[in-house]
Amino acid sequence: MLRLGQRSLQTRNRFSIGLLFTLPSIVFVLLMIVYPIFYTFTLSFHEWSGSARRDPEYVGTSNYDTLLNNDPRFEDAVMRTFEFTFKAVAIELILGLAIALLINGEFLGRGLVRVLILLPMVATPVAISMAWLLMFEPTVGLFNEVLTSIGFAPRLWLGSQDEALGSLILVDIWQWTPMMVLLLLTGLTTLPEEPFEAARVDGANAGQRFFYLTLPLLFPTMVTAVLLRTIDALKTFDTIYTMTRGGPGYATETINIYGYVQSFEYFSLGKASSLLVIFFAIVLGISLVFTQIRKQWGIPYND
């Protein structure tokens, strides 16, 4: 306020013009994002079943305490979420890299393949989950028919505590490997030509070129792709909800499903809120770690 110079006038002017552009979005954000976050955060220190007669009861950090120290089901759900995410994303990365290298460059039907590869990503998860549910069906499903016809023993797929999580990972891999392929393809096309030319002249074979050039140059893209997939995989909901509801037993209960159960089946809104806050912290923490990695390694085609 003391320095009413040209510069502050300018910034103030800039600020008000910027405000005009962003105001509608700011209102939206306050109402639709900030308010719910605030609401959830507040509620996480209370216990409430949604009663119209009793206001939420303040319980301090006891919800957090229960979840973190005294709820084996939550602990299992966290570990399961990590297992699901890690396995799914790791396989998607490897497969995605393989497929991206496979379909990079010219071949007959390239256009068609590049359209088909989009389909699993854009198809409605709930609908496609129903199709998988039918294929997984132990008695009439496609998979067991195929397995038995080529002489293998049928499996239980979603109907067994041992196989259910793996089956869900399979669906996630089918659905999201294409995303990896897409991102890595974009990465591949932006790789500089010169180092590869030089390596070829020096007599480096395909394997050497891949491990010493392609992989390191592609690394930043891979980090970005893994980050995006990790965030989404941690939050996977539609497919799990449609196919198993977290069962059999608790074999596929991830944090997100457990949060849903706490709020909409157990009516423990306070506990559910603290669970969501912890979940948010986990996702945020993981995102920050990745962002840090990306910063460390630098991003060649983005400043």
Binding site: T139, G159, G247, G249
Partner: peptide, 21 residues
């Protein structure tokens, strides 16, 4: 019982019976 029964609620169990299995 049929395989995969731990993922069955009534619509699925009913379907097994309706299908004559």
């Amino acid at each position: 019982g049929p395989p995969g029964i731990t993922n069955m609620s009534w619509p699925e169990a009913l379907a097994v019976f309706q299908q004559g299995k």
